[in-house]
Simulated scan of single mutants.
Amino acid sequence: MNVVAPPRARETRIGFSRKLRAYVALTKPRVIELLLVTTIPVMILAQGGLPNPWLVLATVIGGALSASSANSFNCYIDRDIDRVMNRTKRRPLVTGELRDGEALAFAWGTGALSILWLGLTTNWLAAALSLGAILFYVFVYTLWLKRRTEQNIIWGGIAGCAPVLIGWAAVTGSLDWPAWILFGVVFLWTPPHYWPLSMKYRDDYESVGVPMLAVVRGRVVVGLQVILYAWATVACSLLLIPVAGMGIVYTLAAVGTGGWFIVEAHRLYSSSLRGDEVKPMRVFHASISYLSLLFVAVGVDPLLPF
């Protein structure tokens, strides 16, 4: 007769490599990659050239630890709805690869380490911004806004803007207008980036009672909001040209990739308006490419002599 081992017994058979992969998955590494894409170019812009490689490495490590902490807290807090949603059912707290206590200890540990690391290797302004980002993402977005209002992702996105400020502060020890403009770009970009994803997984969010905009509003309203925020994002990106004295590379990237992002947003709205098949993931993927190319241009532009 086959005997089914109790959950605790099964957990002891999880090998080191599998456990390590589970911790990595807990941090949402794809989200971290996108956040770090905005950090290094901002440091180059703040320096007006290539900053000290050690400073860049220290900031990237600190930023990754900070994001890991925030994302791990998020997975711990949302483990109840993650068990229900198809999109999140493979997360390590759902599969049992990590216990709740392990995830919580990891979240606290990486958070504390990120603050201490940034404070000792960069400056305490960068460390304070890291702390603020973690607290905002955990308490304001995950615990307060996410399950209560359709505006959740708008204000919750503030935490995702923190790497821009951390990168600038690490180089200059202050926060200047170019940093705040790029903060605004990421802030305005977050809704048209995330709302298409919530359209695709609308049934998931509805099943757990999370009032994402796509759940509580129709496709036409969501499409219109995506357009408005896409236009606002591009307009904000153009402000950097006169404020930071950006050159031709950034200008062409901001106009060209921004125009493409807006076109994709209009396509989503038009499809929703006509009742055609809606392909929200086109806008989702376009938004990632747009932000990545824009920030690459932020980093390349100061290195060129024209």
Rank of each mutant, 00 (worst) to 15 (best):
P178C: 12
H285R: 14
L35M: 06
A159W: 04
D276P: 02
Q47K: 14
P242T: 10
A126M: 14
K28G: 10
G132M: 09
T122V: 06
Y137D: 00
L224P: 01
D204F: 03
V226M: 07
E264L: 15
A46Y: 08
L118S: 10
N2A: 11
L113Y: 08
D100A: 13
K28C: 00
K19W: 12
V138K: 12
T233Y: 12
R87C: 05
F73C: 04
G160Y: 08
L273G: 07
L239M: 13
V94F: 05
Y23L: 14
G209R: 11
I262N: 01
A133T: 09
W144M: 11
V283D: 01
W108L: 13
W260N: 01
V185N: 00
A107E: 15
S114P: 05
W231K: 07
G111Y: 06
I81G: 05
G209P: 10
L197Y: 10
A214L: 00
C236E: 13
G157M: 07
L143H: 13
R87D: 12
E150L: 10
R87H: 02
S271N: 12
M85P: 15
L268A: 06
A254V: 06
I248A: 11
A22W: 10
G218V: 11
W124E: 06
S130T: 01
T149K: 08
R217N: 02
F139T: 10
L135N: 03
D203A: 14
S271G: 09
L238S: 01
I262S: 05
L55S: 10
E277N: 07
L120G: 02
Y141L: 07
E150Y: 13
E277S: 15
S174M: 04
W177G: 14
R18G: 14
I166W: 05
V210N: 03
A169S: 14
A70M: 06
I181K: 03
A254P: 01
W54Q: 14
L240Y: 04
A70L: 08
W180E: 13
K19F: 12
L197T: 09
A235P: 00
E277F: 06
L175T: 13
